[in-house]
Amino acid sequence: MKKLPEKLLGYTKYKEIKHGVKQLVYESSNAEDFENRWAKFIEKYDLELNEWLYTLYEERRRWVPCYLKCHFWAGMSTTQRSEGMNAFFDGFMNSTTTLQQFVAQYDNALRSKAEKECEADFASTNTTLPSGSQSFIERQFQDEYTHAKFGEVQNELRCKMNCNIKSVEVHGCKAKYIVKEALIWKDQSADKFNEVIFDLMTKDIECTCRLFEFRGVLCRHNLIVLA
């Protein structure tokens, strides 16, 4: 999320507004939800004439997660890409590294990265992570995914226990499921609802959380429908 300019917003409102922006950005499930939350937020703090926030809103499709979840980003946000780059060079260079040293160490970093990837591929090909259940779905992912990605699938399978189907509507060849997920937010229970669409003919499935589109992993909401 882009950093809020404290000087433009004023010190007294800065902390509260920053928390409000963070909440509506990361908790909005879709574009319509974000639009409604943003309108209420702007009205609440009387920020209609704030030029910086207006510019931020105009660029919302470039940085707000709910607009990006339909595209595959391997689950990486802007900050994660930056952190990933720092980790990539960690141990090979620092603030005192000269330009000549940088060129040599860059090659060393690339070589080390390639070796680790080869080792991970070898481990995924020649070893098998144990299944945590008797699910045929889990076994399919166990055969097809790398260890790291299979670990993400297993996490979704574990979290499936916090979900239950609240309602089902069938229209033609498509079924719409409303899935309730029990969460804990600030030490209090908080329920979240997601909509899952399942095509009875093609067997295609999609969820409003867009985890599969964003990370390449079936979400807990899809899994409970498929179970």
Rank of each mutant, 00 (worst) to 15 (best):
residue 11 Y to Q: 11
residue 33 D to N: 01
residue 196 V to T: 00
residue 14 Y to M: 06
residue 123 A to L: 12
residue 174 K to M: 04
residue 8 L to V: 12
residue 5 P to L: 05
residue 88 F to Y: 11
residue 208 T to D: 14
residue 137 I to C: 04
residue 156 E to T: 02
residue 72 F to Q: 02
residue 186 K to M: 06
residue 134 Q to F: 14
residue 208 T to E: 09
residue 68 L to K: 05
residue 137 I to Y: 03
residue 219 C to L: 01
residue 71 H to E: 15
residue 152 E to H: 13
residue 180 K to V: 04
residue 78 T to I: 12
residue 5 P to Y: 02
residue 86 N to T: 11
residue 185 W to C: 09
residue 187 D to W: 07
residue 173 C to D: 15
residue 177 Y to T: 02
residue 208 T to I: 09
residue 194 N to L: 01
residue 41 F to Y: 07
residue 53 L to A: 03
residue 227 A to L: 07
residue 192 K to D: 10
residue 67 Y to G: 04
residue 168 V to I: 15
residue 89 F to T: 01
residue 119 E to Y: 09
residue 115 E to S: 10
residue 149 K to F: 03
residue 134 Q to C: 13
residue 3 K to A: 12
residue 178 I to P: 00
residue 11 Y to M: 11
residue 206 E to L: 09
residue 216 G to S: 05
residue 189 S to C: 10
residue 101 Q to G: 15
residue 44 K to V: 09
residue 225 V to G: 11
residue 80 Q to R: 15
residue 171 H to I: 13
residue 16 E to W: 00
residue 106 Y to D: 13
residue 126 N to H: 15
residue 65 P to S: 01
residue 157 L to D: 03
residue 71 H to A: 13
residue 160 K to G: 00
residue 21 V to K: 00
residue 9 L to Q: 05
residue 218 L to K: 08
residue 150 F to Y: 15
residue 200 L to M: 13
residue 60 R to K: 14
residue 91 G to K: 05
residue 121 D to M: 11
residue 129 L to A: 14
residue 84 G to W: 02
residue 123 A to C: 12
residue 13 K to D: 08
residue 30 N to L: 00
residue 137 I to V: 08
residue 102 F to G: 05
residue 34 F to Q: 00
residue 86 N to L: 12
residue 113 K to I: 06
residue 179 V to I: 13
residue 96 T to A: 13
residue 96 T to Y: 13
residue 195 E to V: 12
residue 217 V to A: 03
residue 85 M to P: 05
residue 197 I to G: 04
residue 5 P to A: 08
residue 146 T to L: 03
residue 227 A to N: 09
residue 116 K to C: 08
residue 28 S to R: 09
residue 220 R to N: 04
residue 93 M to K: 05
residue 144 E to W: 06
residue 100 Q to N: 08
residue 45 Y to A: 03
residue 32 E to K: 12
residue 109 A to N: 01
residue 94 N to V: 07
residue 14 Y to C: 06
residue 131 S to F: 01
residue 35 E to R: 11
residue 181 E to C: 10
residue 11 Y to T: 14
residue 116 K to T: 07
residue 71 H to D: 15
